[in-house]
Design a protein around this nucleic acid. Structure first.
Length: 433
RNA sequence: GGAGAGGUGCAAGAGUGGUUGAAUUGGACGGUCUCGAAAACCGUUGUGCCAGCAAUGGUACCGAGGGUUCGAAUCCCUCCCUCUCCGCCA
């Protein structure tokens, strides 16, 4: 949610930036409701004051009938006006929630993902003296991926992953946790990128994969809910998470953190669930787009002053990880239409997939500023007072897509897959699977 | 699933209708003392909103939402959560 004071002060700017992101917001209406909300709120407060004054007078002796009648009347007026106020507040909140976070100035303006801007290309695309295969061809040939039986048991967009592919996933997890848990490495990435941040290591987390509806909404990740899975229970109102971000980012809701604790850097590992609404017929081959996939996700809580650099650090970490695997990639600055509603800035990393002869998204880094924490009420206590904290989230590795990239880039003529050097220690030293 | 207990400030914990935004203790911070520290003593120590240049004033908040009452942290209802015992179970 955006700061109402900022919207009051900059209505045109907010309207224009929202438009750039593709959101239709009625700022005029919002400000009108806001004004009314303040006015009625003041009237309610006035009545409360009168009630308090009266009960102050009455607390000694026994009240007279007139005084009781007066108190009753005040109460009734207060109740009816409060009801009016809560109606206004509901409308206010509903309108305010429609306003997206504002893109930073360096976010390219664009109407669709086609206008994302390539800002960096890394690595040499591998050349093969044979026609490179897609990951699904290799995966099925090696009996690593079984989608037919998954379809029978669970439906489309599910898969059984088997054999060496599973071992590869666990190797990847080990490698990433060891890397991001290394304070020396974090310090190096910070200094290599000329950042001014603390070298705090990432703490691994296994978060819940279900989330309460109110928390989901406060993270601004519930919508579009057609893409979410709802859990039908007796009296609970739970949803499956679409990313570890959802239960990581909300974990300090309602809390005031000490500035000295920050930044808090977490590496969450969880399964993610997505209905993939509106993607019928898209990416039906292989395991690129599944209803269920595992992901290592970074989440950082920081002060407002350091959050932008934390965002840059997360992108640097993503690049580092991909470089360690030796997978060619390019970096895209996402345009205004493609960064999410809570984003102020977003960067995608797309890996080169020789089997499909194109780049595909494997990583994303989201810079949220205080947009999420305003509703979550996660704050930091400083000498000058309290402030909303800033959140950042970014993919460390989406397991499925990363393995796709490994399979396709490291395939050999005889249908095997070479193991990137950094992962070999976690696969019993095997150089090829 | 059955039976019970409970959710109060940074923490522990008192408070069962008005004098409580909240006792007490601890922690943290500031000060006195000291070469310095400890101890002791003194003081400070919640958040949001509204008005105001500010000082400040007003208002709300004792898990959440409703209700009773002139008046609710205190009484009633619903929900959420935590804990204990039993049962079941990875």
């Amino acid at each position: 949610m955006l700061d109402i004071q900022f919207i009051r002060d900059n209505p045109e700017l907010v309207a224009e930036k929202s438009r750039q992101k593709g959101y239709v917001v009625n700022i005029e209406k919002l400000l009108e409701v806001d004004k009314n909300r303040i006015k009625v709120g003041q009237e309610v407060e006035k009545l409360n004051q009168q009630r308090n004054q009266l009960s102050d007078q009455l607390k000694q002796g026994k009240p007279t009938d007139e005084q009781i009648a007066e108190g009753k009347e005040l109460r009734e007026r207060q109740q009816s006006l409060s009801q009016t106020l809560s109606g206004i507040e509901d409308e206010y909140l509903k309108l305010l929630k429609t306003v997206p976070n504002l893109p930073e100035d360096d976010v390219p303006v664009g109407a669709s993902e086609d206008e994302n801007v390539e800002v960096k290309v890394w690595g040499d695309k591998p050349s093969f003296d044979f026609a490179p295969k897609s990951h699904w061809e290799i995966g099925e040939a090696r009996d690593w991926i079984d989608k037919e039986r998954a379809a029978k048991v669970t439906g489309s967009r599910f898969a059984y992953l088997k054999g060496e592919l599973v071992q590869l996933q666990f190797a990847l997890i080990q490698f990433t946790m060891n890397s991001l848990g290394d304070e020396t490495l974090i310090a190096k990435l910070i200094s290599d990128n000329n950042l001014n941040l603390k070298p705090t290591a990432f703490v691994p987390i296994l978060p819940p994969v279900m989330i309460r509806e109110d928390m989901y909404d406060q993270m601004d990740r519930l919508e579009p809910r057609e893409d979410r899975y709802h859990i039908d229970g007796d009296d609970d109102n739970l949803w499956l998470i679409g990313s570890a971000e959802h239960t990581l980012g909300s974990m300090y809701a309602g809390e005031i953190l000490d500035e000295k604790q920050l930044p808090l850097r977490y590496l969450g590992y969880s399964t993610s669930f997505r209905q993939e609404a509106g993607t019928y017929g898209k990416d039906t081959e292989g395991i690129l787009r599944m209803h269920q996939f595992d992901k290592l996700e970074m989440e950082v809580f920081s002060t407002p002053e350091t959050s932008r650099e934390e965002h840059l650090l997360l992108v640097a970490i993503q690049e580092y990880l991909m470089q360690q695997l030796g997978i060619p990639y390019h970096i895209l600055m996402k345009c205004t239409a493609d960064i999410g509603k809570p984003n102020a800035r977003g960067v995608d990393l797309e890996a080169w997939l020789p089997g499909q002869d194109k780049y595909r998204e494997t990583h994303t880094a989201d810079y949220m500023t205080d947009y999420q924490s305003r509703r979550l009420k996660t704050r930091v206590r400083k000498d000058e007072g309290t402030q909303l904290i800033h959140t950042n989230d970014a993919t460390a590795f989406a397991m499925g897509r990363t393995m796709i990239a490994i399979i396709e880039n490291y395939q050999t003529a005889d249908g095997k897959v070479r193991v990137p050097g950094v992962l070999q220690p976690y696969l019993g030293g095997r150089k090829q699977i």
